[in-house]
């Protein structure tokens, strides 16, 4: 049973076609890594999945609901899909704890104490419970990204989307974020990860995809993808980044 399904999704920015018909599906509990050069449409695609971008042709189903302009549908899907951004996008005027409890309180209508307990649990899980009362600006990049992961998890989503979560981090901090993501993958979360971290893909991914020029070039198991790629484009890509 696939939890995300896209059929021939197309998207244009003005005259430029960013997605040229993407069809794919993700099973529940699967970890999918999307790789590809910049400008290949991989970020655009996962942003379409929770409708931060609108696709103009084709269909996307999330958890059986089709994404349309219906606001009710969009809000329902967004609370099922957590998203982690490249630039963290924490709310700078709220403390770490408030960042995490905000949506559970206002969207899920949880009580404050309940939300805070859950938030502390999540901070424990991402390894920074001692930072709860600080503001995002006082944390390092890696810590901020871990708070962002906790914030997304606080909504108890079925699916997590990661949009280049480590690209804005210092090399030293990449590992701490990846560790959290690995732990999350092992816990059985459905994840779509756009990343250049091929080590992560090798170790955790169930499937790896390569996007190029708005198209899905290759879809394979990590083993096959790295050791025995089908297309020449993948070979070229791997030779450049490995």
């Amino acid at each position: 049973m696939s939890i995300i399904k896209s059929v021939d999704v197309k998207k244009w920015y003005g005259d430029f076609q960013a997605l040229k018909g993407i069809s794919m599906d993700v099973a529940e509990g699967e970890v999918l890594v999307i790789a590809g050069p910049s400008g290949s449409g991989k970020s655009t695609f996962i942003r379409c999945i929770n409708r931060l971008e609108q696709h103009q042709d084709g269909q996307i189903f999330v958890d059986g609901i089709e994404l349309t302009n219906d606001l009710k549908n969009i809000e329902a899907i967004r609370s099922e899909v957590g998203m982690v951004f490249q630039s963290f996008n924490l709310f700078p005027h709220l403390t770490v704890l408030q960042n995490i409890t905000l949506a559970p309180i206002w969207v899920r209508k949880k009580s404050k104490t309940e939300a805070e307990e859950k938030a502390m649990e999540l901070l424990e899980r991402v390894g920074i419970p001692e930072q709860a009362e600080k503001f995002p600006g006082q944390l390092s990049g890696g810590q901020q990204q871990r708070v962002a992961i906790a914030r997304a998890l606080a909504m108890e989503p079925k699916i997590m989307l990661f949009d280049e979560p480590t690209s804005a981090l210092d090399p030293e901090m990449i590992k701490e974020v990846l560790d959290v993501m690995k732990e999350l993958a092992k816990s059985g979360m459905t994840m779509i990860v756009v990343t250049h971290e091929m080590g992560f893909a090798k170790e955790v991914a169930d499937r790896v995809m390569l996007f190029d020029d708005g198209q899905l070039v290759e879809e394979n198991t990590p083993d096959e993808f790295f050791n025995n790629p089908k297309s020449d484009r993948t070979k070229l890509f791997l030779s450049q980044i490995l």
């Binding site: 931060l52 809000e75 996008n89 709310f91 949506a103 206002w106």
Partner: peptide, 24 residues
Amino acid sequence: GQFEAADAVGLSTLQRITLIIMPQ
């Protein structure tokens, strides 16, 4: 990014304005 983050955690438009955008 603030608008997107607010959307991504599922806040409604009114909540996004009063809780995230206006205070900043």
